[in-house]
Each structure stands twice: as C-alpha cells, then as structure tokens.
C-alpha cells in the first residue's frame, strides 16, 4: 500500500532561511501522524508542501503517489483535505454552507448538493457536533464552534488524507479530545491524518507516530513515547522537558 503522502528529504528555503531542512516523513492509510515543535519550526510549511501549496527546493513530495505540483487543484483536493492554521470565513455564511464548500472538488455547490454530497456534509456536521448550529451564521457562533465548522468543511471533502494545521487550537480539552476521536474514526476507515499541534499530550494520546521539529530539522520521529525523549524535547523546545505518565495518559512537563 503506497503512502497517502510522502516527503523525502524535502528542503524549503523561504527568504534565505531553511524553513524545512531535509525532512522525510510519510502518512499511510490508517495512520495518524502529529507534527510537533516550537513556533517557527516549519510545521505549517511541511503541511503546505504536502498539499502542493508551497514549492520546495530539494527532495521529492508525493501526494497519493504523484507530485502535487503536477496535479490540478481539484485532483489535490480529492486526495487531501487541508485546514489552514487560521481558517477564514470572509463572508458570514451559514455553518452548513461553509461545510458544503468541502464538496467543491466533487463538483457540488452549497445550493446544489447531490445525495452523496448531502450525506457527506451531514456526516461531517454531525461528527463535529454542530447539528444544532448548522443553520447559524459563522459570525453568530463562538470561536470553538467556528473552528469545528472549518474542520467539518475539511471532513466533508472525504479525502483520504486530512492535513490539518493546529486543528485543536482554541478548543477546550473536551472538544480537543472530540477531534482526536474524529481522527481515530477517519484512520479506522482507511484514511490518514497529518496534523500539527502544540498539545504534546494530545499528540501522544492520539498519534501513532510523531515528528518533532526544530528550525526546520527533524529532532526525533517515531512512536510518541520513544521519540519524545527528554533529550529530544529539551533540544527542540530549548527548555528541559520530559514526558510523564499520569493515570495512564502521557503529558509533557517542562521545567
């Protein structure tokens, strides 16, 4: 089974700085992979490269087996659903109209949804616990609800890969765990998830593998408990930290 996304020795130079330096990572069907690292470590850049939204200078990128820059926007959207770090709703459309934009690559528009589109949108809204709010306008709901509406848009796309940039930023702990649940279901159904986060505990809990970055380089990669060693955390974040187990769940503690 080929990888949903595969970055091989990818280097990205932006404004003279190496924001990604020889990074190799992949997400296979059924896998959840977390990108960790301090601000500016290159997490967003890697997600954008994977989606073909950002050029790379060296290395190779494969999205569903092909170079994303050679695919049309539509073909990319059918292979990966991308959620930017600060998702926008420029116009205050309804929650369901926003989620329905995820069906764009399937040829549907919010006012013209086929039965399959409608089912996908309904399922995405349900998964994000937004059913009671689906008719509400994006400027009438809370920040956490907005974040979930954008996640619902990405889910409605029904792409094999979810490439999500800090999908749990601004969510309370219970909602963040709800998102983790969504990831698990997506992976169990044969999809893959690549997401960036500052929530090390969440990553350790939900991800099969983590990639810890610092200054564009991989500091450690692998299963969370093995990869997030004291040395790796300290090197990446510049502050002495370690993973501890509290009542069965892993969390990171920094001095």
């Amino acid at each position: 089974m080929s990888a949903l996304v595969e970055l091989d020795s990818v280097t990205v130079i932006l404004g003279g700085a190496r924001v990604a330096d020889c990074v190799t990572l992949s997400v296979r069907s059924g896998e959840i992979v977390a990108l960790l690292g301090p601000n500016g470590a290159g997490k967003t850049t890697l997600l954008r490269v994977a989606q073909g939204l950002q050029d790379h200078q060296r290395g190779s990128v494969k999205l569903g087996g092909e170079a994303p820059r050679l695919l049309s926007a539509r073909e990319r959207a059918l292979r990966a659903a991308y959620l930017p770090q600060r998702p926008q709703a420029v116009w205050p459309v309804s929650v369901e109209a926003l989620a329905a934009l995820g069906r764009y690559a399937h040829g549907a528009a919010p006012e013209r949804l086929g039965p399959r589109d409608r089912a996908a949108v309904d399922a995405a809204i349900e998964a994000c616990a937004l059913t009671p709010l689906r008719k509400r306008r994006m400027d009438e709901i809370s920040g956490g609800e907005r974040a979930r509406a954008h996640l619902a848009r990405a889910l409605a796309q029904q792409a094999p890969l979810l490439a999500l940039d800090e999908p749990t930023a601004g969510l309370d702990p219970a909602q963040a765990l709800g998102v983790a649940e969504i990831f698990r279901k997506h992976a169990e159904a044969g999809g893959g998830v690549l997401f960036s986060t500052h929530d090390i505990a969440l990553a350790a809990r939900v991800a099969h593998r983590v990639t810890l970055l610092s200054y564009g380089r991989i500091v450690a990669a692998g299963a969370p408990e093995a990869a997030l060693s004291e040395a790796a955390l300290t090197e990446a974040y510049g502050r002495k930290g370690r993973l501890v187990r509290v009542e069965g769940a892993l969390t990171a503690v920094f001095e």
Partner: peptide, 11 residues
C-alpha cells in the same frame, strides 16, 4: 469565502 489558500485547497 474560505480565503485564498483554503479556496485553492478545496480545488
């Protein structure tokens, strides 16, 4: 409506 980048990303 989703902004430039996300609009490109939905196809």
């Amino acid at each position: 409506t989703l902004g430039e980048e996300a609009a490109a990303a939905i196809g």
